[in-house]
């Protein structure tokens, strides 16, 4: 199984400021897929992603990424991570900021123009990041994650605040990347994005409620609508608990 999983999480527990915000979560992310991480705001999506990229102090459990423990130095140029709050330098231009991150990653200089065009920021390439709109800023931050040749992309709500056309283009990009061999874990709380994932992880209040394909989730609940499927799942989990 491990050979076919880019990420394996076993019994992960994370405490943030007291309460356990990730409680005994286990799952595996198969390679070369787009896996969606869904759940209401505050359910622990960002925390889980931070644990996978190795910047979160964890209270227990095991996270294995590309066959190594999360946070291993050898993983540092193999994972592209886009934080939920855009993490780029507001007082640099889009291109200057990408050039810096490219040097840090040891990525070729030509990558800068490639990723600018992948996220559709060519017209803004020479603008200061701090002067961009919210959606443009988050694309500038997403672009950083695409630099180099990451094997795993961990994208925390990368499409929030984007217009539908751009959102569609980015999802097409995600699929192209998956086809070329990259594994993607993308968090979202938009249902129609969930439908575009190959697998879905549903979280609620720090627990994993489901780990399945969208089709299986629909069948299980007997509803064509994913939103309904999730409501069904949440209700049954509450009955069990």
């Amino acid at each position: 199984m491990t050979n076919y999983s880019a990420v394996v999480v076993e019994g992960l527990r994370v405490r943030r400021g007291g309460p356990e915000v990730v409680q005994d979560v286990s799952f595996a992310v198969p390679t070369r897929t787009v896996t969606g991480l869904l759940g209401p705001s505050g359910c622990g999506k960002t925390t889980l992603m931070r644990a996978i990229v190795g910047v979160q102090i964890v209270a227990g459990g095991k996270v294995t990424v590309l066959g190594r423990p999360a946070g291993h130095p050898k993983l540092r140029d193999k994972i592209g991570y886009a934080t939920q709050n855009p993490a780029t330098y507001g007082d640099l231009t889009v291109r200057e900021s990408l050039r810096y991150f490219a040097s840090v990653l040891g990525a070729p200089a030509s990558d800068v123009d490639r990723v600018i065009s992948e996220v559709g920021l060519e017209p803004e390439a020479k603008q200061l990041v701090g002067r961009l709109s919210g959606g443009q800023h988050s694309r500038a931050s997403l672009a950083v994650a695409l630099l180099g040749s990451p094997e795993l992309l961990v994208l925390d709500e990368p499409t929030v605040g984007l217009d539908p056309v751009l959102r569609d283009e980015l999802w097409e990009l995600f699929w192209r990347l998956a086809d070329s061999g990259v594994t993607l874990l993308v968090s979202t709380h938009v249902m129609d994005e969930a439908a575009r994932c190959e697998r879905l992880l549903l979280m609620r209040e720090g627990r994993l409620l489901a780990d399945d394909t969208p089709a299986a989730l629909r069948t299980q609940s007997g509803s064509e609508d994913l939103e309904q499927a999730f409501l069904h799942l949440i209700r049954t989990s509450e009955v069990v608990a």
Partner: peptide
């Protein structure tokens, strides 16, 4: 505070 440090810390820096 702007998370650029967090991002750099995931990189080979």
């Amino acid at each position: 505070t702007t998370a650029t440090l967090e991002r750099l810390m995931t990189m080979p820096l």
